[in-house]
Design a binder for these strands. Structure first.
Lengths: 204, 204
DNA sequence: CGCAGATTTGACAGCCATCAAGGTACGTGG
DNA sequence: CCACGTACCTTGATGGCTGTCAAATCTGCG
């Protein structure tokens, strides 16, 4: 059939670089991340996939995946076949417009991350990551004010920001000790929003 | 009219972040770069635009530019209006497919750069930049073997790789002293391809 | 309980940034 | 043709941010 649901457990790959994939996915529940795996074991995380996000959006037009997607938590997502989506893209201007929006957003997020990695310090990158995830969750109605569900391991934060896990740890501690944030079981609470934003918010 | 040519001199902006822009451009002659300008004067270069490249490809669907484009050399490019392009995208499957290829390539290049900035050392980033520009020029029939037209200033290399101009200079020198490359007036020649690729080629 | 993985912490090293100074190339105007 | 200024390239000294290595503690889970 042209549409289906699937479950994947935490730490399992949803799709892998090198695969031929004719499916577009929408995350329904849970978090995942898209990444590139290098031969020496290092990884670069390209983006975090939140519920409501479309991923592998380019699959209808370039089946060969150049990045992998792995579940952070247990996830549930919906898959659409390539052929059906392409038909809809041509036939329905609304679908077409929605799909282009997705591609544009994806490149926009990638550009933000590029600025982070190229221009900003470790402290700024980490704070910015937390704030940008908060913003995205708020857009989806998932974040209530200061408290943020946050299932990312420090290793993953390191692989997004291009730092080492130890260094991420040091700054998370310094944020806590400065009274900027509080960390709980898979959650973060922003205590001093003004100051935290001063550090992490990108002023173009 | 829906199509036109334009000339811009070196160091002039072709378009600027914040602008509303309903045009898609194709570079006909010369080099340019797409970048984000931060308020403190730092810049992050997102991509280099070579002859034959389409840029501001997302303009038909999100007019507001989030990055600027500036000419490196004197350039000549062609502009297409938003409305006309959107019509063609819907009407002509070949145009549609070409356009999606462009978006896919653009995100792919952005991802490569993310891996560079997140995972790799200064030496590796600089070598990789030169090699990737060589590859792109060869695809366009512009690079003859080892000799590469190369109008990038060291400051620009620094702004792509997230380094300082001084540091770029040190590694360019070390490449020269190791007999890996030769630099001329706005050109680079790769003398020891095997070794240079060992440093700069990304082994996923 | 025992194990594997994650977090935390410290000591130390190294890569890269910063600052400073001088040299070089190129365009401009006299 | 030459003087001159600006931007770029080059080089050195120094410092700091971040990585590496190591070990202890904590956590979740079987």
């Amino acid at each position: 059939d042209w549409q289906f649901h699937r479950h994947v457990r935490a730490r399992q790959n949803i799709c892998t670089a090198g695969d031929q994939l004719n499916l577009v996915f929408i995350m329904c529940e849970g978090w995942a991340f898209r990444f590139v795996q290098l031969s020496d074991g290092r990884r670069q995380v390209l983006s975090i996939v939140l519920p409501g996000d479309v991923f592998t959006a380019t699959a209808p037009f370039k089946a060969k995946r150049r990045s992998s997607v792995q579940a952070i938590t247990d996830v549930r997502f919906c898959g659409y076949s390539r052929g059906r989506l392409k038909e809809n893209l041509i036939a329905d201007p609304d679908v077409f417009s929605a799909w282009t929006d997705i591609l544009v957003d994806e490149t926009s997020e990638a550009n933000h991350l590029l600025v982070d990695l190229g221009c900003r310090s470790a402290e700024e990158r980490i704070a910015h990551l937390i704030l940008s995830l908060r913003r995205r969750m708020k857009q989806r109605g998932m974040a209530v004010d200061a408290f943020i569900p946050f299932p990312l391991r420090q290793r993953l934060i390191a692989e997004i920001t291009g730092l080492t896990p130890e260094h991420v740890n040091r700054f998370m501690r310094s944020f806590r000790e400065a009274g900027l944030i509080e960390t709980g079981k898979k959650s973060v609470t922003i205590l001093n929003r003004a100051e935290f934003r001063r550090i992490g918010e990108l002023r173009a």
